[in-house]
């Protein structure tokens, strides 16, 4: 499905990021580039991925032309972090680092790679958003702000790039088994399961398949959309 294509994905060591890389790799994508805050996080079974150490919190200090001097077909903006706190206790650091990593880093990476996509008249851009961007979630003012900002970006970028055969979409996961949900205790998990009509957490591979669909030929006429993958948790 992705033969002779190149994927660049941020955050390839996380559970969703590594699933996406693995899905693309097993469907023919042999040139995969990714970023991580620390190369020690790269697992031994990820040797097929070209990793570069990059801290998205201060991406403006890197020379992306030197680091990523190649064109790509698929850009998946997956890296994200959360620093939860009720708003009145939220520090400016908790606010800024989440906005920097989840939102601002996309600005720099998009600028860098879109130029190359415009030139070759092909590109598939997929953001990983979140269900809470559309529903809100107490304790996650910073996280939801960063993720719902992506919805606006997706739509405007989709319109700007539509004449160049570049589609821009996002996938909004619900509760997916990941390093983020691993931090929840059993009571929290059960409370979540109660709200999910399918009565189970999603698998990171469910997200990988949705991203794969949006990058595939089957989705070539789909742009500016958010694909919700949440087991019925929120129908929006």
């Amino acid at each position: 499905m992705f033969n002779d294509k190149k994927l660049f994905l941020t955050g390839g060591t996380g559970s969703i990021g590594s699933s996406i890389c693995s899905y693309f790799n097993s469907n023919g994508c042999k040139e995969i580039y990714s970023t991580t805050t620390n190369l020690d996080k790269v697992r031994s079974d990820q040797s097929y991925i070209n990793f570069k150490e990059l801290n998205l919190n201060n991406i403006e200090t890197y020379n992306l032309d030197d680091l990523f001097n190649f064109d790509i077909d698929y850009l998946v903006l997956n890296a994200g972090l959360n620093k939860d706190n009720i708003f009145l206790r939220m520090s400016s650091n908790e606010w800024n680092s989440v906005i920097n990593v989840n939102l601002n880093s996309s600005f720099y990476l998009l600028k860098h790679f879109i130029k190359k996509m415009v030139k070759k008249r092909f590109g598939r851009i997929v953001f990983i958003s979140s269900v809470v961007a559309h529903t809100g979630n107490p304790g996650q003012v910073n996280y939801t702000a960063s993720k719902s900002a992506i919805s606006g970006m997706v739509k405007s970028l989709a319109l700007e790039l539509s004449t160049r055969n570049i589609t821009v979409n996002s996938v909004a996961p619900g509760f997916i088994k990941s390093n983020m949900t691993d931090k929840l205790n059993d009571d929290q998990k059960n409370a979540i399961l109660d709200k999910i009509p399918m009565k189970k957490l999603g698998e990171s591979n469910d997200i990988a398949k949705a991203v794969g669909f949006l990058c595939s030929e089957n989705a070539s006429y789909i742009t500016g959309q958010t694909l919700h993958v949440n087991g019925g948790l929120a129908l929006i």
């Binding site: 130029k115 415009v118 030139k119 700007e160 790039l161 004449t163 160049r164």
Partner: peptide
């Protein structure tokens, strides 16, 4: 269009 001008500059 405006993207063409970006491409011309490139």
């Amino acid at each position: 269009d405006s993207l063409d001008t970006v491409e011309l500059v490139m």
